[in-house]
Amino acid sequence: MEDRARASRLGGSDKRQPRPGLHLLSYAEMEAMPEPEWLVEGLIQKRSTALMFGKSNSFKSFLAIDIGLSVDTGRDWHGNAVKAGGVLFVATEGANGVGRLRIPTWYQHHAVSEEDRRAFLYPQEICLDTPDDVTSLIAAMNICGNFALVVIDIFGGSMKGSEIEDKTARAWVHGIQRILRETGASVLVVAHTGWQDDSRARMHTHFWGSFDSRLRMEGDKDALTGTLTVERHKDADSSGSWGFRMAQAGESLVPEMDSTVKTGTAKKTLSAKYRAALNALDDALTGHGVRKFGADWPPCDVVLTEQWRKHFYLHAADDSPEAKRKAFQRARDALREHGHVQFYDDHAWRCFA
């Protein structure tokens, strides 16, 4: 009180006064919040983050260019409505081929006039876990115009730290959220699947859980076909699968919808026995899980398969040791085949979709 009175007498202000509080939404304001809008119908929402992941040579980059340039030109994406807007491609590898061949070839294939070719390219790595790089990118985007979509290809080249480190993940996600908040653009990130686990992208779990949409890309290099399947939308129905044939166009490839290409099917519900096996794995991870580091290990806890087996036996209803052994072997193999678990060096871990 004396300090404030003194500041008042001297004609100054009390710099220690608290900043205005955060605005908390009332119930009426919650109800009035707008529903999410689609940038690409069924695929990417406005002001959202999307992850496209798949193995090498599954045509991920070609599909990302196809999606991005559909937004750039306002063309329907294979029958799905699109909201037109500016597009920036951040090519952290192979930028020469992207800018000189792939993007021009797509425009030519779809007979887009020169004046309507408005996409931008940033042709090198960028550290989105570094605030200064994020600030520079946002400033460059604001100078060039209004952007609706930023395509980052490939994920591993978009950070200074390691893609399996928690510190890097939190800084990177914060940087991406700044891009959404300060530019209004959506972000589509292209990433490889893991070395030992091809059911998810190769990244720390904090990265994996941060995306609003996850899209799985699978391809057949020899047949020049691919499928894109929605694995999850946080705020929409998580369905949708498209089959493509890669058409040769000049020195590049362009995706064309092909109904004869078999697309993904709905995930099967686990049987009670397999669910019990997963519960046993969760118990084993809780009691004995450890974190391993190295190129062949996932960014999550793993547990010795023998520890999982012991917990499974506690869950198993079969009385004889031989019946329990066979039941565990069947459950282990089936869960791996369907992408629920993965193994390396006598250890097991969960794969979350």
Rank of each mutant, 00 (worst) to 15 (best):
E337F: 02
F62W: 09
K268F: 05
K273L: 09
A91N: 15
F155G: 05
R4S: 13
L285Y: 07
A84I: 06
L335D: 15
V230L: 07
F62E: 09
A280R: 02
D345R: 15
D153V: 01
A81N: 14
A171I: 00
L39W: 03
P123F: 03
R117L: 03
I65V: 14
V173P: 09
H109Q: 06
L22R: 13
Q124C: 11
S252R: 02
I143F: 06
D318F: 07
A236Q: 11
A139M: 10
E41L: 06
E41S: 10
A201L: 01
G79L: 08
T263W: 02
E2S: 02
A334L: 14
D132P: 01
D66Q: 11
G42Q: 03
E125N: 03
A327H: 03
K55C: 04
L314Y: 06
I176E: 11
S259A: 14
P321V: 13
M33C: 06
P298I: 12
D258F: 07
G243R: 02
D14T: 06
D301T: 02
T225C: 10
D237R: 04
T269S: 10
L180W: 03
V151P: 00
D333E: 14
G287N: 12
A266D: 12
W297Q: 01
S213P: 01
A249F: 04
E231H: 05
E165C: 03
M33S: 05
T73G: 08
T135L: 10
M246E: 01
G243I: 00
I152K: 06
P299H: 09
F244T: 06
L43I: 13
D153Y: 07
K273E: 14
L304P: 00
S13I: 06
L128Q: 11
D198T: 12
R9C: 01
G157M: 05
L215R: 13
D76L: 08
D153A: 07
A5R: 12
T265Y: 02
D153Q: 08
H192A: 08
D76E: 13
W106M: 12
W242A: 01
S252M: 05
D14R: 07
G85A: 11
P36F: 12
V87K: 10
G145L: 10
V98L: 04
K167L: 03
A276G: 15
